[in-house]
């Protein structure tokens, strides 16, 4: 069901987004500039977005005869794993959020290990491989930390370790 109405949904969403952006553009401070005001491009582009959104929605309107969806990678095979998607997103956000506090090395090790686990197909999750994943995570995190902090003087948070 979602597939058939993809365009309609995205089109309407974009249309609304365009309206919101246009409204927001009204609050951009203008005046005192010569030439186009600072709100000019935002307004023009949000209007374009509204038009585009409308066109996409019209393109996707429910029709009597079945119109195959345009090219692109519509991979709606049965293997959709939204749980993994959400977990990955949470892991990533947590990683970034915790990095300054807990430190680069520890958070990176944990994140890598977790994310590999999320990705790895069941058959690969043997005890031996788990150890491998852990080692890879540790080596990578430490190597990157030392190369960047000591080699390039690029500061990475040391968090609770430093």
């Amino acid at each position: 069901m979602l597939t058939k109405h993809k365009d309609l949904i995205s089109g309407i969403f974009l249309l609304i987004l365009g309206v919101v952006m246009f409204a927001s553009a009204q609050t951009i401070p203008t005046g005192a500039e010569m030439g186009a005001s600072s709100a000019f491009m935002p307004k023009v582009v949000s209007v374009m977005l509204i038009i585009c959104g409308a066109l996409v929605a019209i393109q996707g309107r429910p029709r009597k005869e079945y119109v195959p969806s345009e090219g692109g990678k519509a991979k709606d095979s049965g293997r959709s794993n939204y749980k993994a998607l959400v977990l990955s997103l949470i892991a990533l956000v947590a990683y970034i959020a915790l990095m300054p506090g807990v430190g680069f090395i520890i958070t990176t090790i944990v994140y890598l290990f977790v994310q590999i686990l999320i990705f790895a197909p069941k058959e690969k999750k043997t005890k031996r491989n788990l150890v491998l994943f852990g080692i890879v995570s540790i080596i990578f995190a430490i190597t990157v930390y030392f190369i960047f902090v000591y080699g390039f003087a690029l500061m990475l948070p040391s968090g609770i370790l430093g």
């Binding site: 991979k75 095979s77 293997r79 959709s80 794993n81 939204y82 993994a84 998607l85 977990l87 990955s88 997103l89 990533l92 994310q115 999320i118 990705f119 790895a120 197909p121």
Partner: peptide
């Protein structure tokens, strides 16, 4: 990464 998570890595 997100797409791979959702579609699975065989």
């Amino acid at each position: 990464v997100l797409a791979s998570a959702q579609e699975g890595i065989g």
